[in-house]
Simulated scan of single mutants.
Amino acid sequence: MKTKILFSIPLLSSVAFACGSYAAGPFPTHLPSDPQDKVQIALLLDTSNSMDGLIEQAKTQLWKVVNSFNDAKRGGRAPFVEVALYEYGNNGLHIGNNWIRQVEPLTRDLDEISRELFAFRTNGGDEYCGAVIQRALADLSWDPSPRTYKAVFIAGNEPFTQGPVDARQACRDAMAKGIVVNTIHCGSREEGISGAWHDGAALAEGKFLSINQDKAVVHIDAPQDKQIAALGIDLNKTYLGYGVHAKEGAAKQMSEDNNAAANAGAGAAQQRAVSKASFNYCNTSWDLVDACREGTVKLADIPAAQLPEAMKTMTPEQREAHVKQMTETRASLQQKIMTLNREREAFVAEALKKQAETTGEQTLDQAIVATVKGQATAVGYSFGQ
């Protein structure tokens, strides 16, 4: 059986906007572009046969992995998360590239990562762990700062050492760049050790984990779930599309809301809403609120033809007031979601603990969330309310 996956994969204050001085919500006082507060996670997913269960976990639990950094701080500052996505081990890819395809480079466009995950289709192939790790090291714009948490997650059940590239050397190369490689074996721990998955993690100061890739992700129902999901939809009303990407961005946002809602049993809608309540959900390329918040545009410089329909006939002062109103409304909704989510986390914590004690098995999100928190702590981050 061929099953492998590499998955690797805030905060009230006031903040100055290029469009004016707006009241802020759950955003840090520094702009997220600060290189000192960056997290980079590479997700290299094997899309060979028998991977359907694990890919389903990846689709629905991406948001939970990103959300693990919502309460992270270092020196009072919160990090932003960049995610890269690869697929490998699929005969539908090109043999000249060792059956590897870069799906997305390191990006903050979480809707695009989600869209690509839902588009994955499995197919038989040869899985080369060393080759895909090597590609991720060479292709991606890894931050050189030792203060940046940089991690790769690779999982599967075929031998780790398959393929034309020395997987152990690839892990050594990663460590030389300050990139942690975590290996996740889909199957028993003993089989993973015999397949050299433990070796890869040891060489790159990562963590060796084993999961049941076919275990369904069980969502613990909580009283706050419906309200959190509903508030996540309400957030969409505060988005002000501008420029050439406005229509595409709004459509993609709605599409991924629908994908999450279709996986409500795994808690995807609730987790996506929490992601949308943090600054890690960022749409500066098409949304005026995000673009003004991060100073990537000046409202006065945008031609009227590129503004939302309702803003085209407004005076400059009315436009400023409208963007400010949407900013404040979004901040209020985000704060409500974060408050409800803290209540929800307290409700489900004991249930999840008992579940793990009963089965002794982890799902993909549980394995990754625990690992990233431990490793990010090593570079100075603390996690808590």
Rank of each mutant, 00 (worst) to 15 (best):
K2S: 15
T3A: 15
P10E: 13
P10W: 13
S13Y: 09
V15M: 09
A18E: 14
P26G: 12
S48I: 00
M51Q: 08
M51G: 14
D52L: 03
G53Y: 07
Q61A: 02
V66R: 02
V66E: 07
S68N: 10
S68F: 07
R74M: 07
Y86E: 00
H94P: 09
W99A: 07
E104P: 01
L117Q: 02
F118N: 01
N123Y: 09
G130M: 05
G130E: 09
A136E: 00
R147T: 11
T148M: 04
Y149P: 12
G156R: 12
P164M: 06
P164R: 02
N182S: 15
E190T: 13
G192Y: 03
D199I: 08
A201F: 03
L209G: 00
S210G: 06
H219P: 10
K226Y: 03
G241A: 09
A246E: 09
G249A: 14
A251Q: 00
A277C: 08
N280Q: 08
T284V: 14
S285E: 07
V323G: 06
M326S: 10
Q334L: 06
L340Y: 13
L340P: 10
A346D: 13
Q362F: 02
A370N: 15
T371H: 03
T371Q: 05
V372Y: 15
A376W: 11
A378Y: 09
G384H: 12
Q385G: 11
